[in-house]
Each structure stands twice: as structure tokens, then as C-alpha cells.
Design a protein around this nucleic acid. Structure first.
Lengths: 205, 205, 205, 205
DNA sequence: GATGAATGAGGTTTCATTCAT
DNA sequence: GATGAATGAAACCTCATTCAT
């Protein structure tokens, strides 16, 4: 009955993790208001009180979820991208990283991407995430496009315009990925998307 | 007799309209679950009893909103598009129609587009819309791309893939438009988006 | 357009009557709390406001219903009974009058009897009927049994006990009559019921 | 661990029981529509949330009440009746069982009998009781009268007619018992009621 | 730590009643 | 007189949160 300290730590970690997993999927699919704390604890197969024991409130759970899980996943997705290469390859690789994450059978990448892109704009009616955190996804793309334009790789449309287009596509695709599932969801190749921002070479139109 | 019949009809219509207007904006910005029925009636400056008098429930209000308002607005947006022209011009004009709607100061077009594109996929956790209705927005684009591919105007990627890309962009943009407002929202030109689906001419790649 | 005074009076009378008819049936079948004012006006095919125009409130409608309709029907049912005859024949005739009323295709007699017998006891949770009125049905039977016992026609059980038995049977039967309808409801002969109160003659037990 | 498991079970049982007790009395005296959920929880001295925690809705509470309590009480009332004896003694004993239950100071027997007899017929406007259950009270009496007629103990009126008479009397008496209380209510002896159905011996007519 | 019974603020819905015409 | 749009008190119900053990 009395477990070792390590066993206890392990158990605790697993429980917290299963709450996170359940919350990530539910918040992404139904939105913060569409999920009850019972939905989460049922999915996580833990008692009602535990969520409050560990997280204090549903809102705090959401905030921890963003800071502890979603941002980690985002880093994980982009960890192999070489940020030192030329802008057009960097953007392509970033896109490939996100699209690759969406293609995987596991749902958490898609959920994380979707929640993150939601947060970027729609913060008014989602619980405030108190701790500051870097919106890597937006900054990365915005800065890279800026640079790419300087070196003549990208078209001359406003950077913000181009960034929003890319993020919209990503958000739309992650949304579809979450709601259609791994099997039914088609994830396009990055080349199609790249066309929107690349400067057209040797064309007449 | 109660007032004149016409006056009564007129009054009733106005009240219903103001409920619809409030509901359209609120549902689009906060999601079905993020809106209380009092939010709506407060915004519409009527008693909450009236909402139930006319619509029966919050859910039925949502359904009526889609059928009576959102689909009308969608038709209105695309009413001047010439559906007989060549696919690549048709898609361009459709895109321009939607982007043009998003550019206008009025919010209802953006709200309608956003709700409609949400419905197309995420029907699981949104109240079911009982009456069947045509998803003009999806069908139009899907069929047109099919034809365009036959006449060699569009790239050879799967039609579904291309359609989803276009709709994702539209959804992302309408989402931004709603949440950033008319002034702060940049709506890109259709040409950039068209690049994703057009067959590249005179290129070797 | 301008009707004559008589026509107007006539119309008014008919409308009030149709409200009464609807209310009588609905109150009897569903109870005061199970009926909405809309149920009544829908059944009476009149506007919502009219009920309040004529009766002031649902509760007042109920009270008027008892005083103006139910007591009238009770009198009508028992109007041919000869109250001067010997108790055992009087009780028999009264029973036959009520049972005869229940046998008729029209529902209003059964509804009236049921409401009346309900009122007799369960006044705590039914709106108070303000105007005093005679509970003919109870008094008639009680007094007659008293007399009958004096002349040795009825058994020696307490009068109250015997009265309650008779009324219980009547109430149960009118309840069945209302809920099963004219066709499906069997109304027993008065003789069976009379056995409960008649003194047994020439028997050894 | 939360309290001891047994304590918890016990506490839960008591709360549920006190809700049942309150509901049984209130539904019987005022009818389903005359009782609010707060009436019940006030009487049971618990929060209204608890009612919904355990029963889901007022309607489900009603259904559980019938299945878990009312039918149990009915069995309890008739548990000592010898169902193997001759019909006329069986009916007498059944009657005595019910009348005996009505005579007791506790109200729950009367409430249970009343609700049960109500259900037998008036199912239209009472919430539907989904689980099927045996109407012991009706079946017992109907079948026994049938048999009794075969062996010549009961009068030759239709069985259904006789059954309804008996049940009407029981319903009327339980109704009175509930509304007048233990002290003020006279419960007649079964002999009087038996007279309605017994074949008259040694008489001419 | 962990549980789940219990609470009550607040959301959803109903419906008796009012009132301008 | 008659209508029916409109109101809001009060019912029903949900769910985030607390707490004793």
C-alpha cells in the first residue's frame, strides 16, 4: 500500500498527463465553453476533485495547458527546422514541419496548433493566458517573410497580409484535421501553399 | 383590432431582425456556447421572453439564423458572379466576391461566411441545423475546380485538397475580419490565393 | 361590419362558452397546474388576451367555471330526482342520475362531477373558490343516509364512512370516464354500489 | 480516501431517501405539476443541485420514485396476503391489506397507493414511467375476481366493472387519507366494500 | 494525495399577465 | 371589444467549485 516516493511521483505525473491529454483534445474540438470539467475528468478517468486539486480551476487548467503542453508541442514540431537557412527554404521547412505534424496519426499536434493559432487572435473570449509566452509560430513566419522579401524571394505583398494567409491556411487545415480525423483528412503539400508567397520567376502575367 | 395589421407585421419583423443581427454577431465571435440568451436579448434590446416566443430555444434560434439569414447573405454575396464563365475566372470572381464582402465595413458578411464555413465541417458540436440546405460555397468551388482541371486551367492536385485550401483561407480570413474589425483587418487580393490552384504556365517545374 | 347589439351579445356568449368548454375539459383531465392559459385559448380557438379580458386571470376563470358551469351541470344532472321519496330510493335515484350522466357521450358531465368531487376535499392546492356555493352532492347524500339509517333502511356504519364510500366510487368512476372516454368506459349499475349501504335483509351473517 | 466507503454509501442513501420521502408526499398531494423541484429539496433539506445530481430531472425523479419506492411499498403492503386461498377470502385479505395500510399513522402507504392507482389509468398527463412494471394491484384483483366468478363466489357483473369499482373505492379512500390525514380520515371496513362484489346468498333478486 | 457528495450561482425555458391599438 | 406582441417572475436545469474524510 505505501508506495515509494518515486512510484508516487510517477503516478502523479501520469494522472496530470492524462488530464492534459483529455483537455487538449476537448478544448480544441469543442472550445473552452463547450467543455465541462466533468468531460475532462471522465475522459481522463480520474476523479472530479483531482482536476481542482492539481489545477485550481478549469481556467487555470487551460492556461497551464497552453504553457506546459501546447508550447512544448510547438517547439517539438519545429525543433528540426534549420533556422539559419535562406528564407524561402526556412518557410518551406516550417510549413513542412507543421503539415508533417498534422499528417501524423496522433491528434495532439493538430490540437496544439489549432489552439495556438486561435489564441493568437481570439483572446477576447477565451480565458486570458496570464503567463506571457512567445508566439513562435507567428513571429517566426513574420520575420522570415520580411527577410525573404529583402532578398527578393517573396512577392511584394504586405508582410502581414502574407503571414495571415499562411496562418489562415494552417489554422483551417488543423481545424479540419481535428474534426475529420487522421484517416479522412487530406493535408496538402507545402508547395501549393508556398506558391502564394513566392515571387514568380520568369513569368509574364 | 390591434394596431394596424401592417404596423404589427412591421414591428414584429424589426424585432426578429434585431435578434438575428445580435445573434449573428455574437455566435460568430464567441461561439454557440460562449453566448447566453440574455447576451442576445440585451444586445437586441428586448426581453428574453421574446427570443423564446419567436424561436423556441437558443438552439432553434441558431438554426433559423443559418437558414433565414446566413444562407441569404451568402447568396447576396455571390449574386453578381457570372457562373457561366471559364473556371479560372469563375473561381477568381467567387473569391473576389467573398473577399469583397469581408472588406466592407458591415460585419454581417464576415459573420455569415465564418458561421457557414464552420458548419461545413464542425457539425458535431454545433447544434444540428435540421433543414437541409445547399452549401453553395463548397459545391460551387468544388465543381468549378473539377471543371477547371478538365480544361487544364488548374493544377493537378486532388480537387478536395484544393477546395479545402481555398475554404481554409476564407475561413481564416473571415475569422480575422470578425475579431480584428473592419479597420485592423487586411484582406489579401485574390491573385495571391489563386496562385495555389492555377496551373503554372510556361514553367519547367 | 357594425353588428347589431344582439349579434354582438350572441358572439360574446359563444366565445365565453367555448372558453368554458375548453377549460372544463382541460382542468378535469390535467389538473389546474397542468393546463396553461394557451392550452385553453388554443382549444377555444380564441385569442390569448380574450381569456384575460373576460376572466381576469386563470384562477378567476377556474372559479367562474365552478360557479357558472360546474354547479349548473350538477343541478342539471339531479334535476329530475324526486327528493321527497324514501331515502333508499332517493340515494338510488341520485346514483342513477350521476351514473346516467357518466354514461352519456358528452364529456362535460363527467368533467363537472370529477372537478366537484375534487373540490370537496382537495381545496388546499387548488385555487380557492371565493364565492361560497352549496356542495349539493355531498350534503344530499350525507343527509339522506342519516335519514335512511333512522328508518332502518341503511346499515349501521357511520354515516360519514358510507358517504365517503359512495363519493369515492363516483369520483373514481368519473375519473375513469374522463380518461378512458365514452366508448371504453364501463359504468356499473347503481345496484352494486347500493349494496354497500343497504341493510341486509333476512340474512344470517 | 474519502470518508469510509460505508459511511459515504450510508450518507448517500439517506439523502436519496429523504428526497424520495419528500417527493412521494408532495407528488401525491399536489400532483406532478403542482410541485416544484425546490419544494422537494426544501422538504428534503438539501440543495436543489443534489436532486439533479441523483435523478437528472424532476421527471426522472418521478419515474424512479414509482419504480424504486412505490412498487416496493405496494409489495410490502400485500406481502402477508395468502394468495392461495379461495377468491373471496383473497379479495377480502387484499382489501384488508390496503385498508390496513391506509389506517396507519405513516403517510407513505396512502401516497404510494394513490400514485399507483393514478398511474394505472391517467398516464397521458403524468410523466411516462419508462421501465415496465407489474401493476400487482390491478392484476391481482382482476384475476382473482375472474376465478371467484367461476366458483360462484362473486356476482355476475363484468369482471372489469367490478375491478374498477374496487379500485375506485381504494383510490378515493387513499385520496381522502392523504388529504385529511391520519386522524381525520375514516377508513371503512372491508365488509362494506365486499358487498359490492359478493354473490348474494339465499335471496330472491 | 484523492475522492465524490454536496452546493449554489447563473443559464435556459415557461407561462401568466399586460397593454397599445 | 379583440388582438397578439411583449414582458419578467419563477420554474427547470447545468456545472464550476468546495470540502470532509
Amino acid at each position: 500500500m505505501p508506495k515509494t516516493k518515486e512510484q508516487n511521483e510517477q503516478l502523479k505525473k501520469e494522472r496530470i498527463d492524462s488530464i492534459y491529454r483529455a483537455a487538449l483534445y476537448l478544448f480544441a474540438t469543442r472550445g473552452f465553453n463547450g467543455v465541462t470539467s466533468d468531460d475532462i475528468t471522465n475522459a481522463a478517468k480520474c476523479s472530479h476533485g483531482l482536476l481542482y486539486h492539481y489545477f485550481g480551476s478549469k481556467e487555470e487548467l487551460f492556461q497551464h495547458l497552453i504553457n506546459d503542453i501546447v508550447l512544448k508541442l510547438d517547439e517539438e514540431i519545429t525543433k528540426d527546422v534549420d533556422f539559419t537557412q535562406r528564407p524561402k527554404f526556412l518557410i518551406r521547412d516550417l510549413l513542412n514541419a507543421y503539415l508533417g505534424a498534422l499528417k501524423q496519426p496522433r491528434d495532439d499536434y493538430a490540437c496544439a496548433i489549432y489552439l495556438l493559432l486561435n489564441l493568437y487572435i481570439q483572446s477576447r473570449f477565451t480565458p486570458k493566458v496570464k503567463k506571457t509566452f512567445k508566439f513562435r509560430i507567428f513571429e517566426n513566419i513574420y520575420c522570415t517573410i520580411e527577410e525573404g522579401k529583402k532578398v527578393g524571394e517573396f512577392s511584394d505583398y504586405p508582410t502581414r497580409e502574407l503571414t495571415i494567409l499562411l496562418l489562415s491556411v494552417l489554422k483551417g487545415l488543423s481545424y479540419n484535421r481535428i474534426n475529420l480525423g487522421h484517416k479522412n483528412c487530406i493535408i496538402p503539400r507545402s508547395e501549393i501553399i508556398m506558391k502564394m508567397i513566392l515571387k514568380e520567376e520568369g513569368r509574364n502575367a
